[in-house]
Design a binder for these strands. Structure first.
Lengths: 272, 272
DNA sequence: GCGACTTTGTGCCTGCGTTCACAAGCGGCT
DNA sequence: AGCCGCTTGTGAACGCAGGCACAAAGTCGC
């Protein structure tokens, strides 16, 4: 046991029991032409999450002037198994050169293409509390940005006040503003009580992808994709590990917690 | 496809290739006494994450005076399959009554026990920016709190200033303060550049569970458990879904996009 | 130009997590 | 007291994801 990502086990909450396959596959035979389209449909969600991580690492490498990487190097920097990395990359096509590795630039382009980052996504943040502020200012982060182009709240005192350069609008204006600014992703950072109402408004405004920070199970039509980040849940999972650890501590003669003197992620220059 | 949790697919980053089983099982025969301890070791991580969600839902029910629930009701409220819910609950023991359901109070107690919430965890937040503020004020959230009892930053102007009732200390004091306040969970909300250094200090201070908000792959000894929440990754996953959706949009004779029929941004051209 | 070395891409196998489906168990009703 | 219906708990099957290991493929050196 060592480092665990946030994922791999959280609360998927499918409203539609059918078609909640973790494989993102639109059951649809290959269309004639190039295979890229088809490939893109078959990428497992787990792989998508990792691709985003690779992209971040690659961006860092590009900034340091690295021209090409082997799967081994990249996998270490990203904290995954190299076979898994190669398999993930194979989902998006074959852009490596055998005997050499991958060209950083090419890989970045391809991952961005698959993740749909070539077309900039406009993000709306609803709920301008502490978290909302943090999100609004998150502006340009590694590997190109998701421009936050709309902010909403109920508090009359906030109306028009620019936060991170964007003026705050009233949540009643969600439909019009979202339509005007072509919002594709909505972020809910409101108190739990108002989350569902806000969500409904976003959906009504045509937003089909929502990132929910409120500790509530949102009810949405099947066409809408919701991902949730629940701080309390994260802490509770960690708490579980603390407890488990304390529990097994008495087990003194367990296999020695071997130091990390593994031959692996050594030497590599990690972006500190 | 409908609502998807944050998990199920993210970046697990095991540093130790061995023993990174997703089943949290310490291979160890049953100890004499009660079987509860043993059970606790065999809970899949995915189930743990969901248990936290059940706990939140149950807390809400208790507040509304609900005395007992069936697996069906609870599963709907938590947004999961009822069979999965029952299996999850079976991991922690049999506390239901056949033909009736589960007693809310009992279930809450048991889940709290398994998640180690009976012993309050002390949390330290490092990096008092916008996000740090949000976390510091997160104080008492649903289903009992993780008291944030220490805050750290490098900014001299913040030293001693109370945020959310807790004074800020310098990160150089992490070892002493963490020891004194028996911190069990560390939260990293710093810029990426300082994350690894902060992480090292926390580890040095004996913290074995870390929640990382910085977009960096942390290097830690195997004894330390890291969970990460990466906003950019979350957005990129959503972006992927937007792209995929736009991609399959040309499939005009697909099942009607139904309800809330707003002029969705269909017809948008696929990124290359 | 050819051989040897390096690294990719992937088929196959293993194992976990999810789902199904049903037997066991309990309360209520007659 | 006995039966009936409801809900739990779980054995078994299925399917996806991860990891291994190797063949394909390309480069570099001679």
């Amino acid at each position: 046991m060592a480092q665990r990502g946030q994922s791999d086990a959280a609360g998927r909450t499918p409203r539609a029991p059918a078609e909640n396959a973790s494989e993102i596959t639109t059951p649809m035979p290959a269309i004639g032409g190039n295979g890229l389209r088809d490939r893109a449909r078959a990428i497992p969600e787990a792989a998508v999450a990792r691709l985003a991580v690779y992209l971040r690492v690659l961006s860092g490498m590009r900034e340091q002037g690295v021209g090409s990487v082997s799967s081994e190097e990249l996998s270490v920097a990203a904290g995954v198994n190299s076979a898994k990395l190669r398999k993930d990359l194979s989902y998006i096509g074959s852009y490596g050169t055998r005997g050499v590795g991958y060209e950083v630039e090419v890989l970045i382009d391809q991952i961005e293409r698959v993740l749909g980052l070539t077309r900039e996504q406009s993000v709306a943040v609803v709920g301008i509390g502490n978290l909302g502020h943090a999100l609004a200012n998150y502006g340009g982060f590694p590997g190109r940005g998701f421009p936050v182009t709309a902010l909403f709240d109920v508090d009359a005192d906030l109306m028009g006040v620019p936060v991170g350069g964007i003026p705050v609008d009233h949540i009643d204006d969600i439909p019009t503003v979202c339509a005007a600014r072509e919002i594709t992703i909505g972020v809910i950072a409101t108190p739990p009580a108002s989350a569902q109402a806000v969500c409904d408004r976003l959906v009504q405004a045509g937003v089909e992808c929502i990132l929910n920070f409120a500790p509530v199970v949102l009810q949405v039509p099947e066409t809408v994709e919701v991902r949730k980040v629940d701080l309390a849940v994260e802490l509770q999972i960690l708490s579980f590990h603390v407890a488990r650890r304390a529990d097994s501590a008495p087990d003194v003669d367990a296999p020695a917690p071997r130091v990390n003197g593994l031959p692996r992620n050594n030497g590599v220059v990690m972006p500190r």
